[in-house]
Each structure stands twice: as C-alpha cells, then as structure tokens.
Simulated scan of single mutants.
Amino acid sequence: MSAAAVNPHAGVKNGRKRRPYLIMEWMDARELEQKDIAEKAGIKAQSIVSRTIRGGANNRKVLTALKELGCPERYLGLPADMQGDQ
C-alpha cells in the first residue's frame, strides 16, 4: 500500500489514512489485545479502541496509547497536531 493510500472503510478525516491491518499485525506480534490498549488509554469501552484502529473514530487517548506502546506512526494516520510528538 502506498503512502497516499486511504482506508476506504474509514469515515473520519485522519482515520482514512490509518492502516488497520498493519496495526492489528503489529499488536498480534506483541501479543497485545484491544483490552490492553483500552487499559493503557484509561478507557473502559473496547469498542472505542476497535473503532479508532479501523479509522471510524479518532480517539486521542487510544492513538496516544498505541503510539506510546511503539506502534509506528505511519500506521496510525495521526492528526497533524499529534504527529512527531514524543
């Protein structure tokens, strides 16, 4: 998939650049589950994690948790104000 490719199933602006399958592969390789991301983000609803990964939502807590856990930013399609932050 090229850098300009979009997620045709996403409904949110930045979420359209998210790579859900790469995020899920990354999580699987680290034996992380959505509940782990929800816990790290401090949220109770795993559905928010799922929607954010798939690009249907842009929950900043979830995106920050994924980023802090080491998920490559190029997979996340981050909003401009979250890009490059450490």
Rank of each mutant, 00 (worst) to 15 (best):
R54A: 12
C71A: 06
E73L: 00
P72C: 03
E68S: 04
K40D: 05
R51N: 13
K61Y: 04
N58P: 00
G77H: 09
A65Y: 07
K40T: 09
Y75R: 01
K67W: 06
P79F: 06
A45R: 14
A41C: 07
R60T: 10
R54G: 05
N58M: 14
L66N: 08
P79M: 10
G77D: 10
K44C: 03
S47N: 14
E73V: 01
E68F: 01
N58K: 06
P72Y: 02
G70P: 08
Q46M: 12
T52E: 11
K67P: 02
T52H: 09
K40E: 15
Q46S: 11
L78D: 03
G56I: 00
G56T: 06
G77I: 06
E68T: 04
G42T: 08
L78F: 04
S50C: 13
E68W: 05
E73N: 02
G77V: 09
R51W: 08
S47P: 10
S50G: 13
G56W: 13
I53V: 14
I43G: 13
R51I: 00
C71P: 02
A65N: 08
G55A: 11
Y75V: 01
N59H: 13
A65G: 06
E73A: 02
A65T: 06
L76Y: 03
G70M: 04
A57F: 08
G77M: 10
R54Y: 12
L69G: 11
R54D: 13
R74P: 00
L69C: 07
G55H: 10
N59P: 03
G56H: 15
V49S: 07
G55D: 11
G42D: 12
L76K: 03
N58Q: 15
S50Y: 12
G56V: 00
E68I: 00
N59R: 05
G42L: 10
G42W: 10
C71K: 02
A41I: 04
G55I: 06
K61L: 06
N58S: 15
T64L: 13
K40F: 09
I53G: 07
T64C: 03
L69D: 08
K67C: 03
I43F: 12
P72L: 01
P72H: 02
K67S: 08
Y75H: 09
G56P: 00
N58I: 10
S50I: 00
S50L: 07
P79A: 10
K40N: 07
A45G: 00
V62A: 05
R74F: 02
K67A: 02
